[in-house]
Amino acid sequence: MNLYKVFTINPGSTSTKIAMFEGEKAVFSKNVSHDAVKLSEFKEISDQFDYRKEMILKELEEAGQTLEGVAAFSARGGGLVNIEGGVYEIGEKLLEHARIGYTVKHPATLGAQLADAFAGEYGGKAFVVNPPDVDEFTDVARVTGLKGIYRESRIHALNQKEIGIRFGKKRGKRYEDLNLIICHIGGGISVTAHEKGRMVDSNDIANGDGPMAPTRCGQLPVKDVIGMCFSGKYTEKEMRDKVTKTGGLVDHLHTSDARAVEEMMKKGDHYAKLIYDAMIYQIGKTAGAMAAVLHGKVDAVILTGGISYDPYVVGSLKEMLSFLAPIEEMAGEFEMEALAAGAIRVLEGKEAAKTYTGEPVWNGFPPA
């Protein structure tokens, strides 16, 4: 068995996660922290490229690691048009969209640029794997009650897909042959219906949808939100922040740390228990909706993400959802492992790398 050497790259707002794999085993990993003041000096995200690259190479040198002999550089990616899931070989169109942040301005867009640069210098292939831009929704899942406002896939695509693939392997089955409900429960919460290898419906973790989360508001009564917007009490930025940064547990309990909420509950804080139970309730409720999407044909409900380590959360969801299908616990996040595994599948010929064309898989419905 060829143990391919794969280097994975996952840039975040103030850090870049890197890891070296030999086969699917991580032999080195590091969360490279970046100085926030230094990052603020760069006008555009792509301007951070040289700085982040230098920091990565410095960390590798200090750890005695080398990029020589790396078979593939695999990155999270981002800023692309909506695409179907899979492993994409980095080409000029993908790089162009990553550099300008074609659809979103986020440091994740640096991943493809770094992977391509390292591959150019050291040899090997360069890939992005199931980036945040993956959108496999069915048309009917996109429609809302307002013409011109449509639902799009904004979920934890990388970890969601990896969990589905890993679960299939454990059961001796292909991910593409299973119907799964995967609940990623972390700083953001995505509850997704996987139908035969495609994420056909989910809640939108960025635009206010589905369960509330540690920092996110989740689904809200729209008329009341309109009232807040025009009350004069909040700026547009403050209202937008309530959706993804200061909503959820933060708004109710002034913390995004689920462990802190658990401590409040242990000390008899009844309001903390109410809010935490409500978050769990909303996760279960959304999972039930995804079961309907799958017409009740569900092979498993899988709990993943950091908060899935919490026995209270897991126990509560098992009580709510065990009538649907077996509940599987796969706590934590497997993003770096997913990046390596995707590259290895292509290198071994088990999956064909896709070409990014820059054409979205969905670009609105034709006029009525």
Rank of each mutant, 00 (worst) to 15 (best):
residue 94 L to D: 08
residue 326 P to G: 08
residue 288 G to D: 05
residue 339 L to V: 03
residue 120 G to V: 09
residue 324 L to S: 01
residue 334 F to V: 08
residue 312 Y to E: 13
residue 205 I to K: 06
residue 339 L to H: 06
residue 129 V to N: 01
residue 303 L to A: 02
residue 181 I to N: 05
residue 249 L to H: 07
residue 354 K to E: 06
residue 58 K to N: 15
residue 93 K to G: 05
residue 219 Q to P: 06
residue 351 E to C: 04
residue 241 D to G: 08
residue 274 L to P: 01
residue 103 T to C: 11
residue 315 G to Q: 09
residue 74 S to M: 07
residue 320 M to I: 15
residue 308 S to R: 07
residue 65 Q to D: 11
residue 79 G to C: 04
residue 228 M to G: 08
residue 311 P to F: 00
residue 111 G to P: 05
residue 55 M to S: 15
residue 356 Y to G: 06
residue 204 D to I: 03
residue 243 V to I: 15
residue 212 M to P: 12
residue 14 T to C: 09
residue 3 L to N: 14
residue 174 R to M: 08
residue 279 M to L: 12
residue 344 I to W: 00
residue 243 V to T: 09
residue 82 N to S: 01
residue 343 A to E: 06
residue 98 A to F: 05
residue 165 I to G: 04
residue 158 L to C: 00
residue 179 N to W: 07
residue 128 V to M: 10
residue 22 E to W: 10
residue 272 A to L: 01
residue 122 Y to L: 11
residue 227 G to F: 11
residue 152 E to L: 15
residue 155 I to F: 14
residue 310 D to A: 10
residue 299 D to F: 05
residue 127 F to R: 08
residue 142 R to M: 04
residue 146 L to R: 13
residue 198 R to E: 10
residue 194 H to G: 08
residue 131 P to N: 10
residue 117 A to K: 15
residue 333 E to T: 09
residue 335 E to S: 04
residue 181 I to W: 00
residue 176 E to V: 07
residue 222 V to T: 12
residue 256 S to C: 10
residue 122 Y to W: 15
residue 340 A to L: 04
residue 297 K to F: 10
residue 288 G to C: 03
residue 183 C to F: 00
residue 342 G to M: 02
residue 50 D to L: 14
residue 250 V to E: 00
residue 337 E to M: 09
residue 266 K to T: 00
residue 330 M to R: 10
residue 348 E to R: 15
residue 358 G to Y: 01
residue 184 H to D: 10
residue 96 E to M: 09
residue 272 A to K: 07
residue 152 E to Q: 15
residue 192 T to R: 02
residue 298 V to A: 04
residue 328 E to S: 08
residue 120 G to T: 10
residue 343 A to G: 11
residue 312 Y to D: 12
residue 302 I to A: 06
residue 164 G to H: 01
residue 62 E to P: 06
residue 135 D to P: 07
residue 274 L to I: 11
residue 26 A to M: 13
residue 313 V to I: 13
residue 254 H to P: 00
residue 285 K to P: 03
residue 277 D to R: 01
residue 228 M to A: 13
residue 138 T to V: 14
residue 329 E to V: 15
residue 211 P to C: 07
residue 47 D to Q: 11
residue 267 K to E: 15
residue 244 T to L: 06
